[in-house]
Structure formats: C-alpha cells, structure tokens
C-alpha cells in the first residue's frame, strides 16, 4: 500500500489533471494540509511513484514566470488511480467508529434533518 505523502501527491495530481506539475502539486498539498511541502520530499517521492509505475512524468512547456524553465508534468497511470483509491477506501474503512468520524456523521445527519 502507498504511504500518506504518496497519496497526497497522487490525489493532488489527479485533481489538477492536465495542469499537474511540481509547483502546482506542492501548492495543492500545502493548501490542503497547512504544512510546508519541501521540494526535496516532493521530487524524491515523485521519482519513487514513477518507479512503482503509479505515475508518468515528462518535461512540459517553459513559461516566462519560471524564468524560461520547463515544468515537470505528472499524470496518474491506471495503477496509480487504483492505488490511491485503495488507500482512500482503507482509510475510510478503518476510520469508521472513530470518535471524530462519528461526531462528524452526527453533525452531517443533523444538517440533513434540518434541511
């Protein structure tokens, strides 16, 4: 099974679709987690994911805001989507019954009842 950070990268890349590249994935992870995502961690994990066949990457276009430097574009493979889905389902399954999940479920049910 993939790790937490690997899952974050896969999910951020999937959400970004055709616009998934280093800086955008990093921004997505930082926004979602509220934690700093280092370039070192990002690129070594992208390499690992590529080695596992969960993503493919290639050099994309260069833009002026990047000082004329190319982007490293990322796309999930079918195996990557399956691995991310498995991770999500496992986390969801294991979380059932946890106090914070139950509370959230109660609140969600209350909101649904009020509507």
């Amino acid at each position: 099974m993939i790790g937490e950070f690997e899952y974050l990268i896969l999910t951020a890349a999937a959400s970004l679709g055709e616009e998934a590249y280093g800086a955008a994935i990093r921004a997505g992870i930082e926004e979602a987690t509220g934690r700093v995502c280092s370039i070192g961690a990002l690129y070594t994990t992208i390499d690992r994911l590529e080695g596992k066949g969960l993503i493919t990457s290639w050099m994309g276009e260069a833009t002026a805001e990047r000082g004329g430097r190319a982007k490293r574009m990322v796309r999930l493979t079918a195996a990557g989507e399956t691995a991310a889905k498995e991770f999500y389902e496992t986390v969801t399954r294991i979380s059932r019954g946890a106090s914070w999940v139950s509370n959230r479920t109660v609140v969600r049910e209350a909101i649904a009842w009020l509507r």
Binding site: G22, A23, Y43, M59, A62, E65, R69, K71
Partner: peptide, 12 residues
C-alpha cells in the same frame, strides 16, 4: 531535466 524543473518551480 530535474535542475530545470526545480529551479523553475522555485522561481514560480
């Protein structure tokens, strides 16, 4: 290739 992507990301 990595140098290009990393420096570009940092500049962006």
């Amino acid at each position: 290739s990595e140098r290009e992507a990393v420096l570009g990301d940092l500049m962006e």
